[in-house]
Amino acid sequence: MKNHVWRPLFVVIGLVVFILLVRMLYVPVDFNAQEKGYTFGYHRLSNEQEWKDYPAKYKESGYCLECHPENTATLAESAHAMIPCENCHGAALQHPDAPELLTVDRSRELCVRCHSSLFMPSSGRSAIPGIDPAEHNVDELCSDCHNPHNPSLEEM
């Protein structure tokens, strides 16, 4: 057969070899079907470790209690005992190194997340004492009158 018939075939073969070579160099060696098989587990295995190494920002209340026992006794007795420290005081991050001080959220918006009165039967919301934030001492901070570590209305 004549040369001009074969030539395109060589070009195609050359292209396929080139693409396969590029693929070999570009795709990481650990990219394969893992435990969950080809359908659900076809991935780069080292990415699992990358996700495991993502930095955690919340340290959970046990970490706070190691250095700050001052408020724990009253807080543990109060109705707010179940609220994690970091919900109001902010994520610990690398505290006490960075940041050295945490910013406490004293806004009304924080308190009304739970204490804005809503009629919600078949939900735990109904059991929480609530106010109407549009009427209840509008220009004041909740913590001006209420102690968040001991919210009992009798001991105000």
Partner: peptide
């Protein structure tokens, strides 16, 4: 193959892929 399921059942996304 950027999103996948780990052996312990968590579905993740490979951000580089």
């Amino acid at each position: 193959g950027a999103t996948y399921q780990t052996a312990d059942g968590v579905v993740l996304v490979d951000r580089t892929w």
